[in-house]
Amino acid sequence: MRVIIAGGSGFLGRQLARRCVDAGHDVIILTRTVNPAVPFKQLEWDGKTLGQWTEALTEIGPVAVANLAGKLVDCRPTASNIAALRTSRVDATRVLVLASQLRKEPVSHWLQASTTAIYSDAGELHLDELSDLPSPGLPQMTGVAAAWEAALEGANTTSKTILRTSIVLAQGCPAWDRLTLLVRWGVGGTVGRGQQWTSWIHIEDWLRIAMVALGLDPQLAAPQGVVVASSPHPVRNRELMATLRSHLGRRGIPTPSALVTLGAIVLRTDPALALTGRFVTSTVLKDAGFTFRYPDLDTAVTHILG
């Protein structure tokens, strides 16, 4: 299979590319800046317009698409930043859809990235793929992700999976590195009230789900439509931070909400990333027979820290 990964130079893209190559598939990464250090074939694109890269998608033969393209969410929630978050995702998706329509036969499988943040701050609700989206929801969460998913309309593909991914835990993953750095600095205590739910997933389980979505797992059929990529056991923030402190052998000072908001200004990030939460699990994966290798937080953290 020829696998095209848009936005493949990011952490998840590189991990997925390696998994595909190890499984014997050809990988092409679409990126805005070609990086000689990345050991995969790369084609430059601007994420907005058709160009020479289009030939990789329209070339005759079976092809799968993983669309992971988009600006990193770790930024201040200003109107301009929110617009950039949205347009970077929507434009990239629309031009991929346009390129797919130039093919003589459909793309075999399409993995469309999305996020569980689409549910915004869900409080005590327990959510899955069939749960209604909040209206209007937070603009930097629901406002970005809903438009991202909608941009997939018209894709020329026989299989379409919209993967709403929770926080991915892995060495080198931005969320994991930020959390463990805070713990090592001694400020990894409860964040805000600590009651907010954290939905998370180990990188290995995310990769296995992604391979299923791309039709590259002979054991399971690719689920159609929305799929939540999240462990079956979300935890509250206080449990997340306590688990990390226990494994890293550190104490932690609690961070009140007001201090989180102030610190976010200094770090040029969005305080809602830490102060909001959601309890989201997948009914679709359970019904499909998918089994998580790292279903609980302690097992996942133990494996990551080796």
Rank of each mutant, 00 (worst) to 15 (best):
D217S: 13
V235M: 07
V226I: 15
V228L: 10
L240C: 10
P223S: 14
S246P: 03
L248H: 01
V235I: 14
L244N: 01
E239Y: 04
L240M: 14
Q224P: 09
P234D: 05
A229N: 04
D217L: 06
A222S: 14
A222Q: 03
A221L: 15
A222H: 01
G225S: 14
L244Q: 08
A229D: 10
S231F: 00
R238V: 04
V228Q: 13
P234H: 04
P232T: 07
R238L: 08
R238I: 11
H233W: 09
L216D: 06
L220K: 01
R238H: 15
P232H: 10
L220I: 11
L244G: 11
S246N: 06
L216S: 12
V226Y: 06
P232C: 02
G249E: 10
Q219L: 15
G252Y: 00
P254I: 01
P218F: 09
P232Q: 02
H233I: 06
R238W: 04
A221I: 14
A222I: 12
L244H: 00
V228W: 03
R250V: 02
S230R: 07
A222R: 11
L248W: 00
S230T: 05
Q224S: 14
E239H: 13
A242H: 04
G225M: 13
P234Q: 13
G252W: 00
V226A: 11
R250E: 00
L244K: 04
L220M: 12
L220V: 07
P232V: 08
T243M: 01
R250H: 04
V227W: 06
L244F: 12
L244E: 06
T243W: 08
H247D: 03
R250F: 06
P223Q: 15
D217M: 05
P223F: 09
R238G: 06
M241Q: 08
S246E: 06
L248M: 05
G252F: 09
P254S: 05
V228S: 14
P232K: 10
R250A: 09
L220W: 08
I253M: 07
Q219H: 11
H247T: 12
I253N: 07
H247Y: 11
M241G: 06
A222L: 08
R245T: 04
S230L: 07
A229F: 05
P232I: 05
P223G: 12
A229T: 12
Q219P: 00
P234M: 03
T243D: 00
G249S: 09
P223E: 06
S246D: 04
L248A: 04
A221T: 15
I253D: 03
P218T: 10
V228I: 15
T243P: 02
S246V: 12
Q219N: 08
R250G: 01
N237S: 06
V226P: 13
V228F: 05
A221M: 15
L244P: 10
I253E: 09
